[in-house]
């Protein structure tokens, strides 16, 4: 078991009344799974992803990641856990505009206090794996959307995480680019055993996963195994 969510609740108070973003979410994810989260706008997909990614807290419930109770960890330990095991991929890529491709991929390694020479080796390896060695000195604005997302995924993988959380990774791409990215995810999942949890609107993309979780109004509506 990689991670487990038990009875997760999250809400906001708007004008005195409580609006639930998530209600009673229970989810167990095994190492090497490929999970898709689907649901209409406002159903809580992103919030759930943020909680899994430790970017956000729940108001109630328990979250166990790699045998550790996340909500009870201290900030520092949680950050440690998260730095080592989780990679993020965004719909809008979120590359740092002022940094080159190489430097963007290097960034998470810097925060892991990896030594300069080692960082070089890791980044070089990833550039090679993704076939973007030739673009390493370009800035994000000089790349197409698909290429930017490729760099985004490369960056997420740089720290060799156990799980990649992807928030609509193909949302800003055309269908061909999207397909390439999904193929990449599939390959990473199959060949490297990386656990992938993606939020998506598209049935087609969801079908790449082994399990699809349908959310509705913050609740798990349906779980479909494929």
């Amino acid at each position: 078991m990689l991670l487990q969510l038990n009875k997760i609740f999250k809400w906001v108070n708007v004008g005195g009344s409580r609006t639930f973003l998530l209600r009673d979410i229970n989810l167990t994810v095994q190492q090497g799974e490929f999970i898709s989260i689907m649901g209409p706008s406002g159903s809580g997909k992103s919030t759930l992803l943020h909680i899994i990614g430790m970017l956000d807290d729940a108001d109630e419930g328990e979250y166990v990641f790699a045998d550790q109770n996340v909500f009870k960890l201290k900030e520092k330990q949680r950050s440690q856990l998260y730095k080592q095991h989780i990679g993020f991929v965004f719909q809008a890529y979120h590359l740092i505009d002022e940094l080159t491709v190489y430097e963007n991929i290097e960034t998470p390694l810097i925060y892991q206090d990896m030594k300069g020479s080692e960082r070089k080796a890791v980044v070089a390896d990833i550039l090679d794996r993704f076939g973007i060695v030739g673009k390493k000195d370009l800035f994000p604005s000089q790349l197409s959307g698909g290429q930017q997302q490729l760099v985004g995924i490369a960056r997420a993988l740089a720290s060799n995480p156990k799980v990649i959380l992807a928030d609509e990774p193909t949302g800003n791409l055309n269908s061909k680019q999207g397909e390439e990215i999904m193929e990449l995810f599939k390959k990473l999942n199959k060949e490297d055993g990386v656990t992938i949890i993606q939020v998506t609107h598209s049935e087609k993309n969801a079908s790449y996963g082994s399990r699809t979780i349908h959310l509705l109004d913050g609740r798990v509506d349906q779980i479909v195994n494929s």
Binding site: G53, L55, K76, S79, Y82, K83, F88, H94, L95, I96, D97, E98, T107, P108, Y111, Q112, R155, S159
Partner: peptide, 16 residues
């Protein structure tokens, strides 16, 4: 803000 967010997501602590 975006850059800071990205850095934090990539493991930057508040201190760094």
């Amino acid at each position: 803000a975006k850059e800071i967010g990205v850095r934090k997501v990539n493991g930057a602590s508040r201190k760094s």
